[in-house]
Design a protein around this nucleic acid. Sequence first.
DNA 1: TTTATTTTTGACCGTCTGGTTAAACCAAAT
DNA 2: ATTTGGTTTAACCAGACGGTCAAAAATAAA
Lengths: 229, 229
Amino acid sequence: MEIKDKLTEEKIFEAATQVFLAKGMDGARMQDIADIAGINKSLLHYYFRSKDKLFDAVFEKLAKTLFSKFIPVLSPDLTLEDKVRFFFREHIAFLQQNSALPLFVLNEINRKPARVQKFLENIDVKLFWETVKKQHGTELGGNALSIDSIVQITSTIISISIFPFVACGILEGVLKKVNLQFDDYFEMRKEFAAEFVIGALKSMNLNSQSTIASGSEHENSEKVTQYNK
Amino acid sequence: MEIKDKLTEEKIFEAATQVFLAKGMDGARMQDIADIAGINKSLLHYYFRSKDKLFDAVFEKLAKTLFSKFIPVLSPDLTLEDKVRFFFREHIAFLQQNSALPLFVLNEINRKPARVQKFLENIDVKLFWETVKKQHGTELGGNALSIDSIVQITSTIISISIFPFVACGILEGVLKKVNLQFDDYFEMRKEFAAEFVIGALKSMNLNSQSTIASGSEHENSEKVTQYNK
DNA sequence: TTTATTTTTGACCGTCTGGTTAAACCAAAT
DNA sequence: ATTTGGTTTAACCAGACGGTCAAAAATAAA
């Protein structure tokens, strides 16, 4: 299963990616990586000093790939509904092509939590919150929208998108038992997830109106009309 | 960190549980387990023949613990709404006490997918579907309720409950950045998740009414009134 | 007490693993 | 042709690891 016609470093990196994704840091063997890359084991240490360094390089690229998929959501030229639909369609499609990615990243972060800080350094979480509030605050209940709520909503959306891939193994077994196809599940999920979340947000909006706001919120009632068209 | 005053086999099992949960199968060392149990390494092989056997014993118990938490949902004496509220309250509370469990089980299943079959053998997925449909079919859109929908809804609910614990490491980092407490997030989540799902289901029900059923569905409109009280 | 059985230990083994090193290889420059 | 620089290889190393074994220690049976 050699990989030919590429620069050695690239061959090593790809082979390492393949092996680390499948076996994890602890389960991966340098010899296996060398075999797949079709080179001598010493070359691994020539290009990357140690297993740790090689792993760090692979992990950083994969984690960056995974996290970068959340950024497009901040583009302001869509309504919240369309953003939700866009996100699930694109994100699930991406994960279908990279189904081993989430569990790998999550597991290795859990094994060494310090890894996560490097990525959070470059991300301004408060800015993300402010941006969401600015773009969709009124659609989500106006001033009553707390940062806690944003965190809950965001983590819920991400959960719905990613978790089925993390639980791939179980899901595949369950689907087989009721004669359903793996691929069909995810095709259906792109739309289902979006409508599910949109429905929930609508309902939240209604609730926050009835419990918090009373009268005077013209803007809100307009939004409600928009949702309930 | 020895564990005293217990039967040797029990001490070994607990120490093994602790180490496997923290390091996973590949990262765990028999010597570490022996040290924590406060016994000689040979004793591990005396009671459990090999590392694999020891791991299998630990994994089976932990996986059973995790999966068993879904069963109470099938008790029929609650409305769907109350069932959802009950599930999130109890399930998240359980995971708060066992936060390492999901990622461990999911990761080891991914590493060796055959593990999952042993558990699915004893579970009749179709029966689960029929039971849900019988108990809550009308609340969820009546005859239009397909098995695909049940799978989507169920997997969504489980995703919302479990995923934050799988992404523990990232979540902790993000919360710290906006001065939020880990525990507060999960306390809030118990209620938020329930209302989120209930709101989404209400909305689904409305949609299926408007698109599929037209008139004649007395039972459905009653249920809608119940939801929109 | 003696005998038999089970439990626990320390010493040991073969293998695997990440890593090192010195030499060989090779293409380009001199 | 020789030198120079980077690249690749085979052989090797020290430590870690899962596992074994015979003997000691503890417990129960006689």
